[in-house]
Design a protein around this nucleic acid. Structure first.
Length: 104
DNA sequence: ATTATGACCCGAT
DNA sequence: AATCGGGCCATAA
């Protein structure tokens, strides 16, 4: 399969369960490029699988809501994650409880 | 092949 | 704690 870096990102993002969040660095790492967090962001922005890839479940390395220019921006994202059951600390996600981990 | 860009990350001040 | 700057890397033109 000609799975490019971005394709892996999509696959990984699709696997993020509800109520959990993953970091760009995490996805990049799982995709094989631990330092390509930036590229992950660019790919997420393109987001060709909009409803399939829960890009709103992808946050910064420390759980901070980076990026996102959709709708009301970070506000919408925060609200959505909250609704999904993600623990929030002010404007930050509680990675201690809601950080997704690929355990396969 | 090269250039330009970007929803990041981390160390230093 | 907040701010600044540099690095790193895939994608598109």
């Amino acid at each position: 399969m000609d799975l490019s870096f971005k394709d892996r990102i999509y696959e990984l993002a699709k696997q993020i369960p509800r109520g959990k969040v993953a970091t760009y660095g995490q996805l990049a790492k799982l995709a094989g490029k631990p330092k390509a967090a930036r590229t992950v962001g660019v790919i997420m922005k393109h987001n060709p699988f909009a409803p399939v890839v829960p890009c709103h479940r992808v946050v910064g390395s420390k759980g901070d809501l980076v990026g996102f220019s959709a709708g009301d921006g970070l506000a919408s994202k925060k609200k959505l994650l909250k609704e999904e059951g993600v623990a929030f600390i002010k404007d930050r996600v509680d990675l201690t409880l809601c950080l997704w981990q690929k355990k396969f």
